[in-house]
Design a binder for these strands. Structure first.
Length: 357
DNA sequence: AATTCGGGGAC
DNA sequence: GTCCCAGAATT
């Protein structure tokens, strides 16, 4: 192996010593049941620890084990997930719970090939469950491990990063007694020492093994990814009943944000108010009244920014038959429906606006 | 192999 | 505003 000279078993001991001297108190570290490891690892996919902690605690209180989880409905599960993002994770957790009951009597398999076939579980999560819950020597490859490995091996461009090669290397040095501790050690090192910008090499237990540090390249590795952000503008005609007790929303049945609820949106190109009002006449009712507009809310996603322009209309008599999946929902029941965060924010704006209507 | 997914926080 | 995060699924 081309890179292995500087990567050796000495690192294993140094990493573990550093980890147990600096280990943080995180809620999932008090409970290494396979179930808890599974849930926490799914929540942590592409999501920072700080955001996950409160969701994890709330989840374990409501769904302490897989049997209780498997009896829950998708709407409640998605509502518990509201604000965490990447909602297919929540739908897959429920799907996976059903499969665990059906295939494995509610236990979580301790074999890679079985785990990897379950919904929402890929290479990372399978390895995390095997190493942390079952103490099997499977190295994890997440964003932290990726960055730490790239720095240690001085792999500058992303093209040179060969995943399998690094995985093989980690497999050689992972602790056989404490594989979970080893994996958590590398991840925590990436999080707290081997930072994206300005790594704290003076605090690093394995700087002596790091080629980037030796060559003083640590600030230039890895290279920036240079994302391209696309933007979009959307009109939101928000319809409330004349008595101001209910609001029109629909459930998204397919595509992105599947299973979540939102307001109808119209792409903001060309005509403006006319298009919203045509939309209302066609789909809801001829008898409506226009009120004001709300604060414009911009929402940023990974490669995407959407600017939402909400307008309030009230409908005197809902004449037209509503499309499938659309419902008038009383404001007091909205908390039971999962909304994407930006829509939840706009709902707050609507209620605030109605106080002065 | 590359893109989608579509939240949130730190700057 | 930009970049990143205990990635998986899809094409």
């Amino acid at each position: 192996m081309k890179y292995s000279s500087n990567v050796n078993k000495e690192m294993t001991v140094k990493l573990l010593d550093w980890f147990y001297a600096n280990k943080r108190d995180l809620p999932w570290r008090h409970d290494v049941r396979p179930y808890s490891v599974w849930i926490s690892e799914i929540m942590l996919q592409q999501t920072v620890i700080r955001s996950v902690i409160s969701y994890y605690k709330k989840w374990m209180k409501r769904f302490p084990d897989v049997h209780i989880l498997a009896k829950a409905g998708e709407k409640e599960v998605l509502t518990m997930w509201e604000g965490l993002g990447y909602y297919s994770r929540a739908r897959n957790i429920l799907k996976c719970a059903h499969q665990l009951i059906g295939l494995y009597k509610g236990t979580i398999p301790d074999e890679y090939d079985k785990l990897i076939r379950l919904p929402g579980i890929g290479d990372y999560t399978a390895s995390a469950i095997l190493s942390i819950a079952y103490k099997k020597p499977y190295p994890v490859m997440d964003a932290n491990v990726n960055r730490v490995a790239r720095r240690i091996l001085a792999l500058k461009s992303w093209d040179l990063f060969i995943k399998k090669e690094v995985a093989d290397l980690l497999k050689k040095i992972i602790s056989s007694k404490d594989p979970g501790g080893f994996n958590e050690a590398v991840m925590e090192l990436g999080q707290r020492v081997c930072l994206v910008d300005t790594p704290l090499c003076s605090q690093c237990p394995v700087s002596g093994h790091c080629v980037s540090y030796k060559k003083n390249l640590q600030d230039r590795i890895p290279e920036k990814k240079n994302l391209q952000i696309k933007s979009r503008e959307t009109l939101l005609p928000i319809l409330i009943t004349e008595n101001r007790k209910s609001i029109l929303v629909f459930e998204k049945k397919r595509g992105v944000l599947q299973g979540l609820w939102m307001f109808p949106g119209i792409s903001r190109t060309g005509g403006y108010a006319e298009r919203m009002e045509q939309f209302i006449e066609k789909n809801i009712s001829d008898d409506f009244e226009k009120h004001g507009k709300l604060t414009v809310r911009t929402h940023h996603y990974t490669r995407f920014a959407e600017k939402l322009f909400p307008f309030i209309y009230s409908v005197r008599k809902p004449g037209k038959k509503l499309k499938e999946d659309w419902m008038w929902i009383p404001f007091r029941e909205l908390e039971k429906y999962p909304f994407p965060s930006v829509y939840r924010r706009i709902l707050q704006d609507v209620e605030e606006y109605m106080k002065n209507l």
